[in-house]
Write a protein that binds this DNA or RNA. Sequence first.
DNA 1: ATCAATATGAAAATCATTTTCATATTAAGG
DNA 2: CCTTAATATGAAAATGATTTTCATATTGAT
Lengths: 128, 128
Amino acid sequence: MSNYNTAQKEKIREIIKKQTKPFYPKDIYELIDGVGLTTIYREISFLEEKGLLKKTIHNNKTQYEYLTPCDNNNHFYLKCDTCGKITHVDCNFIDKLKKHIYNDHLFKLNDINLVLNGTCDECNRKDN
Amino acid sequence: MSNYNTAQKEKIREIIKKQTKPFYPKDIYELIDGVGLTTIYREISFLEEKGLLKKTIHNNKTQYEYLTPCDNNNHFYLKCDTCGKITHVDCNFIDKLKKHIYNDHLFKLNDINLVLNGTCDECNRKDN
DNA sequence: ATCAATATGAAAATCATTTTCATATTAAGG
DNA sequence: CCTTAATATGAAAATGATTTTCATATTGAT
C-alpha cells in the first residue's frame, strides 16, 4: 500500500475540516498537540494535490483554504487581498469570460486556479 | 533630496527596460557587473511601487515583469502558469466582469492587481 | 507474531529576502 | 572646487518559511 493511515493524519484532517478561513501550516501546528510541523507540511501538500485545499500566496507565505468540492466548471475564487479570505463562487458568468479570453486573447484560463483578487465587502466597509 | 541618482541605479534600470520576459531579482544581478544584490532588491522594490514593474509569485519566488504604463482602467493581466509570462491586455470586456462581480458577488476587483492565471497559446501548443 | 513498506519528527540544510552597519557617494551651499 | 549632511551601497549576518535527512517508530499484510 502506498499511504498508511495514522493518528497524526487523522488529527490534521479533523482540524483542517473545521477551518472556515485561510490558514498557514503553522496555524494548524499550533492547534494540534503532538504532531510535528514536518508532518503537517506533508499532509497539507498531500491534501492540496488531492484538490481538498486551495493554495494561494498571502504575505509571502503559502496559505491554504479548505474547500468543499465542486463538480462543475462554473466556479472561480474571489480572494480578498486585505484579509486573505477566499470566496468560492459558482456562477456561469465565468463561461463568458473564459470564451472571451480564449477567442479574443488566445489564452486558456485555468479552471482550478482562477482566482480574482480584490477587496471583499467586509474589508471594503472597514476602509471607508 | 530623498533619492540620489547613482551609477548602480542607472545600470539596473537600463537592464530592466530591456526585459521582455518576467525575471527574478537574481537574474538582473547576474546580468550586471559590479552591483550588489541588495541594491538590486532595493531598486526593484522602488520601481514596483512606482508601478513600472508588475509583481507576481512564480515557483515560490517573487517575479517581476517590466510593463509599459497604461492610463485607462480597461486593463488586466494574463499570467501563464507554465512559463510565467505576463500578457498585458487592454480590453473593455473587463468592465462587464467588474460590474458583474461587484453587483452579484459584493466584491470589488482590484484594477492594479487583476491577474488571470492560465496557459498561454505558446505553452498550450507545446502541451498538445 | 514477523517484517518490509511507510510514516514521523527533530535537527540540519536550503534559499529567497531583509536587516545591519561601516564605508562610500551624492548634491547643494559656501 | 571644498565641506558636509543626507543618502546609497554592499558584504555579512539575520530571518523565516519550507524542505531534506535520517534514525526511529508505526502500519498492515501474510
